[in-house]
Design a protein around this nucleic acid. Structure first.
Lengths: 247, 247
DNA sequence: CGTCGATTTGAAATCTATCAACGATGGTGG
DNA sequence: CCACCATCGTTGATAGATTTCAAATCGACG
């Protein structure tokens, strides 16, 4: 089985066999973590970096009112605290959603890795910047869209991100999130998430059987959600496609 | 006059005279840009990095409906596209809000700078990561707060960020934003921003004379907004304050 | 003084949260 | 195998928040 991280990076970069094996040996030992368990707390300063090998997790903050705000979903192949050493301390918590397999990489090992493998270094920074771009997109998504668009957009994002690590088919995937998890991410109540999903199913753009979500017409769903995958920076052609423009 | 960027970095790092002068000579030439003018477009791939020396700008995307979504404010001392080279292309636009003085630094020069000045390299990456943390906080702020808290939180953030570059006093600052600019950032209509500001003024937490916003009781405002400045990673003590916690 | 942009106000329509109840489902222990 | 329980999904009704549209006011400035 291909590590989801390697698979993700190879979607964008050409890794050498040396890169691959270095990454593999750094991330060999994983531990199992139960659902709804914290992997890191706000204020933590860990000397390890964590990678999700399987399962879903999220970055979140808990507000004074006790409500939880999810600022990002962490899926297989995602690295949690790549930059925490520079920042000093994590400013949010990370918790699992379903059962996860988590790999801890000592910072020392990671530094060696990035120091000796320029392509890997570049690829990991790219992954981290894509995570940032996703956050920006969430900001856009949450601020100015109807509830249906928000949810649809999130479903599109999952499709692309899960496809990049081989966890989604052409038009669907299994999603272990509760509706209240979707609500904590979009700022909606779980009741409203429910009704929004029903509307989406009503249009035929979204189908659901248990945890399996599928999309009969992906193009149409993306158009409806105003989902433009450019922000995921997946296609290597993005650079060349950029139009020349003078200011 | 101290460069706002240097001032910001020195709030957190101790720069050598060599660091300072290198940064100063790299950012000597600035140009004036009119209000409401784009500095970069979605899809751009520039070989320059831009820094705002004076004035306000914002990162934004325009949606299909024509509405604008602001994902970040860029204030003096902020760098715009530090990581664009890795990402390939910018996935959002940057535009001025009022008249700005903008410095363009060729990527080549910047790479020399970070290559030869480890502390600067670290400081600039730190600044970039703080920008990311601010985005996370916006996500929290927008998703789960009342309109009053959202606006109050934004006003608190400006206070801290502007103080870090010497553009705010102890309890107030001049803010060149229109109410519709605040709305584009918070996802509210300008009408609702207006009414929200009125409520805040009604509580006595916020005062305004023209463009000058002031806060008679900053502590109270921050408490009301649930504003915790930790996410700005300003105080070097943050690391030591972090409680030890086992998982 | 007149104009332009921005702020303010009012009223109605729409969206969303909240509360409360019910239904489906899966796991557990007897 | 079944009763029980906990969790999540679904539904209905109501209250509250927010948008929208339109008009009035204010302020800076030529």
């Amino acid at each position: 089985m291909l590590s989801p991280l390697i698979q993700k990076l190879e979607g964008r970069f050409t890794l050498s066999e040396s890169d691959r094996s270095a990454l593999r040996s750094a991330s060999c030992r994983g531990r199992r973590v139960r659902p709804r368990t914290d992997l890191a707390w706000e204020g933590d300063l860990s000397d390890h970096v964590q990678m999700i090998r399987s399962g879903f997790a999220c970055r979140y903050k808990v507000l004074a009112a006790g409500t939880r705000s999810i600022v990002a979903y962490v899926i297989p192949g995602d690295i949690c605290d790549l930059n925490v050493a520079i920042l000093g301390a994590v400013d949010h918590s990370i918790g699992t959603i379903d059962a996860c397999e988590v790999v801890s990489i000592p910072r020392q090992v990671l530094d060696d890795l990035t120091g000796n493998h320029p392509t890997l270094n570049r690829a990991l920074r790219w992954a981290s910047l894509v995570d940032e771009a996703i956050q920006r997109e969430w900001l856009v998504n949450m601020g100015r869209h109807t509830a249906e668009r928000q949810v649809a957009h999130l479903l599109c994002e999952f499709l692309w991100r899960l496809q990049a690590v081989g966890l989604a088919g052409r038009d669907g995937y299994e999603l272990p999130l509760r509706q209240s998890d979707l609500g904590d991410a979009t700022g909606m109540s779980s009741v409203h998430v429910n009704r929004t999903l029903q509307k989406l199913r009503g249009t035929g753009l979204v189908r659901r059987e248990g945890r399996y979500y599928s999309f009969p017409d992906v193009e149409a769903l993306q158009a409806f959600a105003q989902f433009d995958p450019k922000y995921l920076h997946r296609s290597p052609g993005g650079v060349d496609d950029a139009p020349l423009r003078q200011h």
